[in-house]
Simulated assay, not measured.
Amino acid sequence: MSYPETINLPFNAEIIKSRFTQIKPSGAAEAGHGHLVLLQGETLVLEGEGLFRGELPISLAADGAPLLFGTWDGDPVRVYTLPKSQALPAGLHAVHWNALPDDLATLYGLARQILYWEKLSRHCSRCGSSDMERIFPTWGKRCSGCGHEHYPHIHPCVIVLVKRGDEFLLVRKPEWAAGRFSLVAGFVDFGESLEECVVREVQEETGLTVGDIRYIGSQNWPFPSQLMAGFVASYKSGDLKIDGDELEEGGWFSRDRMPDSLPPNRSIARFIIDRFALGAGA
C-alpha cells in the first residue's frame, strides 16, 4: 500500500478524522455506552470485524472503568486495557495492530497513547504524590500536594535517509529481526533544532557528515509516544563507522542491492525509502 503524503500515514489523525472526534476530560457526566476499544498488549480486541459495542463484560472488568476519549461514527468510544493473560469471552478476538485496517490501527494507537499517559501521570514526578487531579478540559493533571502541572509527554525524534549519489544509507539495530534494515533515527536533545539533531545522530551513529537537509513530513508513533520527523540529507564526508552501541550494522545500498527486509510499509521510514530512495523522489 502506498500513501500520497506523510499526513496520510496510519497513527496520524487525518486517517480517522471522518469517523472520530476526540473528547478531552471535562468533569461533565458521560454519555451512554457505545463502542469499547479493548487493548491487550499490541492487540485490539474486536467483535466480528469491528469494535466491541455495549457494556464491559463483568468477566473483563478488573481495574477501574473504561475511559471516555471521543466518539466513533457519532457514538461514544471508551478505552480499557486487559491483561495479556486475560481469556476473552466467546465472540471476541484479539488482532495485532499490524493486521488491522488503517483506521482501526490509528484508533488503537491513539487509545494506546492516552492509556500510556494515564499510567505515566499517576504520580507527580516533582514530589512523588499520588494525589493527582485533572485539569479540565485537557489531558493535563495537577498535583494536589505541590501544585505542579503535568501535561502529556510527546517525544520528538528525527529519522533520516542519507543519500550519496545513487546510494543510500541503511542501518540495523541488534534487536530487530534478522536481515531488517532501516534509517538512522534518534531523539531530539536539549537545545537542538530538528536539523541539528539530524546532523548529530548521523555523525554519532555512523561517523558521517551530512548537509542539504530537507524536511519530508511527520508521523505520530504511539510506541509509546513519539513524533517522528522525517528528513532526507546528502552525504558530505567521512567513512562509515557504526557506533556499535545502538547499531550493529550499516551500509550503502542501491536499487540493485537491497537488504532482506525493510521497515513496515505503514511507517514513515518505509514512506521515505520508497519515495526518496526507490521512487519518484529519488
Rank of each mutant, 00 (worst) to 15 (best):
F181V: 00
D243T: 03
Y215L: 14
D189G: 12
G64I: 11
L38I: 04
P10I: 09
A65Y: 12
L67A: 14
N265R: 11
I216T: 09
E248Y: 10
A177E: 07
A233H: 01
G74L: 05
Q40F: 11
P83Q: 13
K17T: 12
R53P: 11
F20D: 04
C146T: 06
V199D: 10
Y108Q: 11
V95S: 03
D239N: 09
S130Y: 07
E167R: 03
R275Q: 10
S254F: 00
Y151A: 10
G54R: 06
R78G: 05
G279E: 00
G238Y: 01
Q113W: 10
V210E: 04
A65K: 11
V184S: 00
D131Q: 11
T209M: 13
D243H: 06
I154C: 12
R172N: 01
S234L: 07
P83D: 13
V95D: 03
G186A: 02
Y215V: 14
P259S: 04
A185S: 12
P263G: 07
L169N: 00
L161K: 00
T6E: 06
H150D: 09
F181N: 00
L82T: 04
P66F: 08
Y108G: 08
G50W: 05
R78K: 07
G34E: 01
I213L: 14
I16Q: 02
L9V: 10
R164A: 04
E118N: 12
E49Q: 11
R19L: 09
F276W: 07
V171M: 08
I16W: 02
S254I: 00
I135T: 03
S125C: 14
H96F: 14
E175V: 12
L67S: 13
R164E: 01
S193C: 06
H93C: 06
F190K: 09
G147N: 07
E149G: 08
R112N: 15
L44Y: 04
G251R: 01
Y80D: 02
D245Q: 15
A29T: 14
S193M: 06
T71R: 13
L169A: 00
H33A: 15
D239W: 05
P83N: 11
V162E: 05
H35G: 05
S18K: 10
L51G: 06
G140Y: 13
A111W: 08
R200E: 05
S59R: 13
P137G: 05
L227Q: 10
S59K: 12
G250Y: 04
L278P: 14
H33C: 14
A105V: 14
H148S: 12
S234F: 01
R172H: 02
